[in-house]
Amino acid sequence: MRPAAAASDPTKHFFQPIIVCLTVASVALTLFVIWISLHDLSLMRAGREKFVGLDNYIRFLGDPRAMAALWRTVLFTVLATVIEIALGLAVVLFLDRDFAMKRLVRTLLLVPIIMTPVVVGLTWRFLFDPATGMANYLLSLGGIDQVDWLGSPRIALFSVLVADIWQWTPFVILLVMAALESAPTDPLNAARVDGAREWQVTWYVLLPMLRRALAIVALIRAIDSIKAFDLFYIMTRGGPALSTETLNYYGYIVAFTNFDISYALAIAIILTVFTNVALLTMYSVLFPKTGDR
């Protein structure tokens, strides 16, 4: 569009106010949060807060519980994203053929996604119950010793991971399936004629075509995993022995159990910055500017 035309474009009267409102709201809120995080606001001694500068951020670096939570968040995010993408992709490639129940299968895939996290969390808590749960029953059928799924600090994080994978892999499947169906089939046939075996067709032609969709799904899943809270709250409450406490959950404890509002907001900001840096890095790796492939 020519500059003159842009200047007189009347549609700006519709979108500009909205942009201004949104900008003001988000900028103002962010600045307010940063401002509070530079104080020592605590609900235990309301009205006596004072400016402390970067103390909260320095405290974070020296807080072993926070650092452990950060590490757990990274571990959970990486594992959840990688496993969900890999598993989802495998299921999609397996389902990519015509069979009688395809529509039914697709509808069933929606069930975990539309279930509220509370129900999912409770269901998996029951499944993982050491005495009455289905998981240990299945292990007993195979003659394997019982496992304390949610009670053992070494295992609990992975038990939550299983529930997360159960709930969110179908989301990956649906999105990748949509991408697969909108992908052209002629190049696949061309590859077959060109002498490629089926795995080569998938590896050299199909997967590169799905790369964009996979990258976007991975980003969405990574963001969600970093922010995961509901499953942790319902299944473990960060326990046992803090072994499932993620940074997000720790922030919640600091704010609503310890009422240390300023420190909680500092954690929230660190989490936000950390998320952005990680995702921007991921994004620039997945979508290099040169060539825009």
Binding site: P184, D186, N189, A190, G195, V205, P208
Partner: peptide
């Protein structure tokens, strides 16, 4: 199967491999 018939095919939709360069496309077979 198609790969063992040793034929080459040109499609109406061109059917080039969208993520490969021209050189890679031609070199694929």
């Amino acid at each position: 199967p198609a790969r063992e018939r040793d034929v080459a095919m040109v499609f109406q939709s061109y059917a080039l491999y969208p993520t490969m360069t021209v050189a890679q496309n031609i070199a694929f077979p």
